[in-house]
Design a binder for these strands. Structure first.
Lengths: 152, 152
DNA sequence: AGCAATTAAATTGTGCGCAATCAGAATTTG
DNA sequence: CAAATTCTGATTGCGCACAATTTAATTGCT
């Protein structure tokens, strides 16, 4: 006989599993659209960050994206190999690597700007619902981040 | 000068990015708790599925978890190496691999049942808020899944 | 100036996640 | 019944994620 406590271990009860599957499904939705640009999902959000603010260090970029150098270094090397950006050591501080978009990298923004609206449409969410969900997730991220930060 | 259309490409406007970072933060919250059990996050949700229903095929398990054999086969081999389960070919249909928990795998459920409440507490969400967010994410997953399914 | 501490990236190693491909088994169909 | 098709897992390859370690550069302290 199933215990009452089993309820808390059910897969369909878990917020984490809903989040986990939803994130994967969202990435899967982007994949065919990004394939046209020759980008993976993580490369896409990296380009979003760089279209907003160019000529920043790997560290600053990592803080925006919540990614560390173990992820960013090879990813940026691939984007560099694709001709979208250049990685150069800072002359002032040789420890720092500055990321600069190339003309090609800047130009890709025009192709990318059609993507967000296509995605929004497919979520079938109203602008209000989307903003609400997005902000709830952002707030939850901040709350969870307190725990993970203070333990390190 | 920044174009109006740039707004749609801003990182902090993206639902996908909020989802992406929140999912990673949630996984990071589980990590130290799961370390005590010797499980990764994906191994944990796999165990959740198996605690609910044991002796199922890799295919059925994959459908529950939204994971394919490329992910599950090596993951299940690791869980088998840890002594938590056994993988056996079905005698009726040799194509099918049946996953069975060992005594040790079943016993781990008792240790795991403390985890969900600890996580819920750290989200600082009321039970109602948590259920609402979880159900919204599940619904969004189902909507997005329509698009990704119909294209294949 | 000299040396420890700090900082920024890079590197290494493990484990997903998934597309693509392959192999073997079962089923369908002419 | 034989050929074609479908089905289930396994394998391979690539790209994240992230912990841990290493390397090199800078800063702080005496």
């Amino acid at each position: 006989m199933e215990q009452l406590s089993d309820h808390y271990l059910r897969l369909d009860q878990q917020l984490c599993f809903a989040l986990y599957t939803c994130e994967k499904e969202m990435t899967k939705l982007y994949r065919p659209l990004l394939e046209d640009l020759g980008l993976t999902y993580t490369q896409y959000i990296t380009m979003l960050a760089l279209w907003e603010k160019d000529e920043i260090s790997v560290k600053t970029l990592g803080q925006k994206l919540f990614l560390d150098s173990g992820t960013l270094t090879p990813l940026l090397k691939r984007l560099e190999a694709s001709g979208l950006l250049r990685r150069e050591r800072d002359a002032q501080d040789e420890r720092v690597v500055i990321v600069r978009l190339t003309e090609q990298g800047i130009a890709m923004k025009q192709q990318a700007c059609a993507i967000p609206l296509q995605i929004v449409h497919r979520t079938q969410l109203s602008p209000e619902e989307l903003i609400k969900l997005r902000d709830e997730l952002t707030q939850l991220t901040n709350i969870l981040n307190q725990y993970t930060e203070e333990e390190s």
